[in-house]
Every structure is written in structure tokens, then in C-alpha cells.
């Protein structure tokens, strides 16, 4: 690798429309740049889309909706909050948000990892999928709104609730409603009525602990937490009761 490729390319995004910004990103990535620093980002959408290479992008400011939509490879670090649709239909890569993320984070993700330090909005992790070793993961440090993991068809969703106070519950309702694949790990408690009809609750097994070790370890490394302290708390595993939740709905 040449020195030039190793150096971070700095782009000042102030005043740039998303189309201009993304065209600029395509250009620098096609030049072989490995690291990009985006300054003064303010609402520009689709950052990380159509780059197709494992480049490092560090964003200062607030990226707009659909951050990393259809993304295939890049690793994006956001020094701030992400908006709605972060990781929409993402294929591969990583998004690390040092703040909050909006609604439908990880919508239909097919692979890659998303780490959010704080909270996420509604329907996070909806319809994530998996196939063999392609297994997307969404790790949320704070809490989530309703319909977390709705229609989940695969992947791993971890909700840590680190910002919940002593004795405070997660507030999301309809967690895992329509879930027919994948797995959700919750740290902190939820009441039975908060769960969708299609999920079951189970204690963690050895392999669940291993999975958690890995992802919580990464989470802690990104945001400067003590992984063991997080893992000391009790986790609950939510799993789909049926792979065909609506199979009995119909008359043939």
C-alpha cells in the first residue's frame, strides 16, 4: 500500500448537496483512497452507498437519512447522530454511531454490523435477513422504540439498555412482532405484554454467551465501555416461535 492511499482524504461537506458529496466520494474511492474524513456533514443522504470497497469513512456532523443504504464494504464511523434508515438493505460493512440513530435502523440488512452507542427509533432491525455465514448484526447501547426487530427473518439484534436507570424497563412494545428468523438479546427487563405474539423467551445458552461476548466486546471497544461489566447483567433471549408465523392464517 502506498503512503498516499494510507493518508486520510479530507472533504469539507459544508454547502455540498448529497449528489455532489457522493460523487466526490465515488471519485476519491476510485482513486484508491482508503480513508476519508468528512467534515461539516449536515443532513446529506446516502453516504457510503455505491462505493463497493472496504474504505474507512469518518463523519463529523450529522449524516442524513439512508446512511450506508445498499452499502457493500465501507466502514463508517459517525461522530454524532445518524438519522432514519441507517444501514438500509446494507450488504456488507460496518456503521458505528457515536450517538443516536433514527427509525428503521438496519432495515432489511443482509450482512455487516451496525453499532449505535445511544438509542434508536421505531422498527429498528426490521426484516433483517441471513443466509449461511451472512449474518447482519445490530447492537444498540441504549434503548429502542416500538416494533424493534419486527418481521425479523435473520441476523442478530442486541439491545443493551445502558442508559436505563436502576429499575427502569425498556419501553418498546411489539418487540419482535412477526419475527420468523434471527435472534434478539435484551439486557434489562421487558414485560411479557411488550413482546410480539410470534416470539418466545429463553435463557441464554453457552453459544449465546459466546455470541454476546463477541459483539458486546466490539461495542465496548468502539465506545470505551467495559465489556465484562455490561455482560455481568442478566440477558434475555428472544427467538421466533415459528418459522412460518402466518402459515395457519390461510385456507388452501
Amino acid at each position: 500500500m502506498t503512503k498516499k492511499a494510507n493518508r486520510a482524504v479530507k472533504i469539507d461537506a459544508s454547502g455540498l448537496l448529497y449528489r455532489e458529496l457522493n460523487a466526490r466520494l465515488r471519485e476519491v474511492v476510485s482513486n484508491g483512497t482508503q480513508r476519508i474524513e468528512l467534515r461539516n456533514v449536515c443532513g446529506q443522504r446516502y453516504i457510503g452507498t455505491d462505493l463497493g470497497r472496504p474504505v474507512e469513512i469518518e463523519i463529523f456532523g450529522t449524516p442524513g437519512n439512508d446512511l450506508g443504504a445498499f452499502m457493500d464494504g465501507p466502514r463508517i464511523t459517525v461522530r454524532g447522530n445518524a438519522q432514519d434508515g441507517c444501514g438500509n438493505t446494507m450488504n456488507n460493512g460496518e456503521i458505528i454511531v457515536h450517538g443516536h440513530a433514527g427509525d428503521i435502523s438496519g432495515l432489511s440488512a443482509r450482512g455487516g454490523k451496525i453499532f449505535v452507542r445511544e438509542d434508536v427509533g421505531y422498527r429498528a432491525g426490521i426484516h433483517m435477513k441471513e443466509y449461511q455465514d451472512r449474518r447482519p448484526a445490530l447492537v444498540i447501547g441504549g434503548t429502542a422504540q416500538d416494533f424493534l426487530g419486527e418481521y425479523m427473518a435473520g441476523g442478530i439484534l442486541i439491545l443493551l439498555g445502558l442508559n436505563l436507570k436502576e429499575g427502569e424497563h425498556h419501553k418498546a412494545n411489539y418487540i419482535g412482532t412477526g419475527m420468523h428468523g434471527g435472534i434478539i438479546y435484551l439486557r434489562g427487563s421487558v414485560e411479557a405484554f411488550q413482546l410480539g405474539k410470534e416470539v418466545g423467551v429463553a435463557e441464554l445458552e453457552e453459544k449465546d454467551h459466546q455470541t454476546l461476548q463477541g459483539f458486546v466486546g466490539e461495542f465496548a471497544a468502539h465506545f470505551g465501555y467495559d465489556a465484562q461489566a455490561i455482560l455481568k447483567h442478566r440477558f434475555t433471549k428472544l427467538f421466533p416461535l415459528w418459522i412460518r408465523p402466518y402459515g395457519r392464517l390461510y385456507a388452501y
Binding site: R110, Y131, A153, G154, G178, I243
Partner: peptide, 18 residues
């Protein structure tokens, strides 16, 4: 092709949630 396990229902939600 669909990226879901064999034998699972392939569920397309009524709206696109974005």
C-alpha cells in the same frame, strides 16, 4: 436468492417501512 432459511415463510410486509 432470497437470503432466508429454507422452509421459512418469505414475508413481504404490506408497506415498505421506509
Amino acid at each position: 436468492t432470497r437470503m432466508i432459511p429454507t422452509g421459512t415463510d418469505a414475508l413481504s410486509p404490506a408497506p415498505q417501512h421506509d
